[in-house]
Design a protein around this nucleic acid. Structure first.
Lengths: 223, 223
DNA sequence: ACCTGAACACCGTTCAAGT
DNA sequence: ACCTGAACACCGTTCAAGT
């Protein structure tokens, strides 16, 4: 015991500690509420000090995004063929991003060049190529999968945010559909039982990935 | 000439005129820059006055979103079978939304129950059903298509925003890929020629829709 | 040389006070 | 009854002035 301090010195400010604090804040208070001022508060400094380590909020959030992706493990040989592995990988990214509120919004406004984003992109392309998808089409396919991941993560985050009110949201939407004139919207009316009964969300997610990945084989450049 | 006024009286404030002014502002200055204060300025009043006609910015933007969709024409009998028509419809919605900056962001934070959104949803479901997609799966397919429309519109808006700097963006990304160690990212490295050469954007968009729609037939509940 | 208090130029929304 | 000026509680970012 060379020190008599009863509380540890707070860690010195650094880019990594700021990014980590921001991710925690995203989880605790949401993406929109994670402001530069609140992040500064979380690391016990003033907002101006953050700008020594990050250029702006967008850059900070891009770092937070990539930190979140660090949790994604790549599928391995035991996980099946290339299609099964791509589906598994995409599912994992959706689950991970979707658990951090609207963090996936970063993908909409930013080209992501972070370490983990690249790691996942490399593996996606590798699997596509292993599956015989032509070189010209691989980037298109990866982009399509990435679009699906982003929108699905945001959908999942919205659902998580609704949380306990999930039934309320479903009921509200069902009420909208019920109120629609059956003459003008016959199909919505007829499908109403299946429209709101989101039923098995996992089955729906799996089905979507199947359409996307198995659909690669029917498009030109597919096999 | 019963009036001697040299300038017409400005139209009285109304929900419709506010929404129309907001859409114009989105086109001229962008989605994020379309603030309540600027919309108020455009209709020659103070920001507080808007709240007589709309509950908040989110509701206003939902109205703007639906107004934009008014421009989308549904395909007709001459446009081919159900798959061709769904692709055509989706393509039109993507083109329309994508031409109004990030207006498609509305779809991420909101359940859209506007007149035109419902009109398009009804037609999508009708075509899916006409194609023999099972009732249980139709809502899933419509949702998948809707996700694709939203993310593609946002991608297109981002590209339009880059505008003249398109080559610069591509070159920047290519530089990132080139700088990657070929050892750690062999596939990205190998595919680099095809990665940035976005080549024919229209062909890519068509290819994606083909994967999605033709993929419906290979998934369970498809035919 | 490094850090930051205070300020700048904005936001969305509310509500008391006017007409 | 309807409308709105002024205020409230925030933002992201900058920079002069400190240590």
């Amino acid at each position: 015991m060379t020190s008599t301090r009863t509380r540890p010195a707070k860690p010195p400010l650094s880019r990594a500690s700021i990014v980590a604090a921001a991710l925690t804040l995203v989880d605790e208070t949401g993406y929109a509420a994670t402001t530069m001022r609140r992040v500064a508060q979380a690391v016990d400094t003033g907002p101006a000090s953050l700008y020594v380590y990050v250029a702006d909020r967008e850059e900070l959030m891009a770092e937070v995004y990539d930190l979140a992706l660090a949790d994604v493990t790549l599928p391995d040989e035991g996980d099946g063929d290339w299609r099964a592995r791509i589906k598994l990988l995409a599912g994992r990214v959706i689950a991970t991003l979707g658990s951090h509120d609207d963090l996936a919004l970063v993908a909409i406004t930013r080209v992501r060049t972070g370490r983990h984003a690249l790691r996942i992109m490399e593996e996606t392309l590798r699997l596509l190529r292993a599956g015989g998808i032509s070189d010209a089409v691989c980037p298109w396919a990866a982009d399509l999968i990435d679009q699906h991941i982003t929108s699905s993560a945001l959908e999942r985050a919205a659902r998580a945010r609704a949380g306990g009110t999930r039934e309320a949201v479903g009921a509200e939407l069902d009420a909208v559909f019920e109120a629609l004139p059956a003459g003008a919207y016959p199909t919505i009316h007829a499908l109403r039982p299946s429209m709101t009964t989101t039923g098995d969300l996992a089955a729906q997610a799996t089905w979507k990935l199947r359409v996307l990945i198995d659909g690669l084989l029917v498009a030109p450049g597919g096999a």
